[in-house]
Design a protein around this nucleic acid. Sequence first.
DNA 1: CGCCCGTAAGCTGTATACAGAAAAGTGTGC
DNA 2: GCACACTTTTCTGTATACAGCTTACGGGCG
Lengths: 241, 241
Amino acid sequence: MARATGKSEAVYERLKGDIESLRLRPGAKLGEVQLGEELGASRTPVREAIRRLAGEGLVDFVPGEVARVAAISLGGVRALFEFRMLLEPRAAASVATVGAADERTLVPFRELLVRLEVFDESFRALDSSAQAGSYQEFYGITEAFDQAVIAACRNPYLARTIRDLRSQTVRLRHLSHSGPRRMLTSLEEHRAMLKAVTHGDAQAAEAACRHHLAQTLQALIDSLTGLDPTLGTDVSLDVAG
Amino acid sequence: MARATGKSEAVYERLKGDIESLRLRPGAKLGEVQLGEELGASRTPVREAIRRLAGEGLVDFVPGEVARVAAISLGGVRALFEFRMLLEPRAAASVATVGAADERTLVPFRELLVRLEVFDESFRALDSSAQAGSYQEFYGITEAFDQAVIAACRNPYLARTIRDLRSQTVRLRHLSHSGPRRMLTSLEEHRAMLKAVTHGDAQAAEAACRHHLAQTLQALIDSLTGLDPTLGTDVSLDVAG
DNA sequence: CGCCCGTAAGCTGTATACAGAAAAGTGTGC
DNA sequence: GCACACTTTTCTGTATACAGCTTACGGGCG
């Protein structure tokens, strides 16, 4: 068929969204027949989508068994952030370096910096109940930042790996909304990253990104251990900030 | 069916081998029907295998079009090695650190060091025609080293990403067998990496790995530009040794 | 009361059928 | 002789059918 909206792609996007948003809980069974009926597709596109999601680590898949939404463990979260801390600071530095030589690549980052400043000002003017409604815009900015880094990244392997990891990060965010205090510090961290990048300061960009990831991981851990103290630990590789 | 030998898996392994060994040349068409007939399978397992290989970068895949064996470009090779240089030195350092605390993880590395010394001695005793026949054992050692690093790597994301990249590296090796001179320097580089790891010296392991990758890339570039000067360039991210 | 085993239902792996989109080949017009 | 348009073929995307493995449930035994 290969219709304009490709059914396999549609199922993939739908499933990905449902997993990221936790509408599908970790460990939930992903039966091919059942999902096909729910999404109005046959098994073939569903199968394909499940394999793709397994490749991104959003689905636990063992041949012959029912696929399940990937479990979340404290160790897994640590490993994820340790890995991100290896990739993303380097990507940020690379973007800053490239931007220093080619102004055009910095345009989206300058726009984001403006958008962030506008948001910051309006946010501080709100009372706490109204602030809650601002999460959307804030997450929009952080998402756009990550996307901009990926788009500006010249190394396709690095770009792709970072992109594939985003889904998992998004899901973790949905698992534990941090309070407005963390949001403000995160905003500050993004300001630092944006300024470093737009100034073409690779070293500062790298440091700011490392700091941001370390802070985010810490907030996540606090939030998770509060939610469920029985998650489990292990996994190595240093997590220096 | 889900027979012990899983047909999808078999097709995947076969295709992967054929692509790595260049029996299937870059750009070769991978028609699902044709491959199915050749490998004695229906389209379904073939499709699955092709998607997996596309995920590993061994196949260029555009929905609706015929899948093709991934092209090779000088820029792509550079990007691959830049990315490996970000991951593997870190993994080597991590393995050295872990090994310093837990002797058991070093066992395979000690064994490899012995195997390498034995090979080195016997290799130097051969005349140049007989040396050519030793490539197999040498590549076996380097392969085993990479596998050991992956196995010892505590971070599953890092381990998996390095593993997925190996196929491409193997293919490049088949594309351009370097001469015995490069083999000897590569052997020396592996000795350095093994010694650093078994001594628990993370910094030395990282440096040795970076050096090895830089040297390998250089040898590859020399070999490739000699083979086909019309490959194309571009791609950034520094390749410091 | 708990454990084990057998049966049955459900699910995945694979093969195949059908519809529509690429792609290749062919013939025509310039 | 070359470019373009059309026809035909081939391929992919999707749906569905069948076989064997997994798993869940229920009954019997210790």
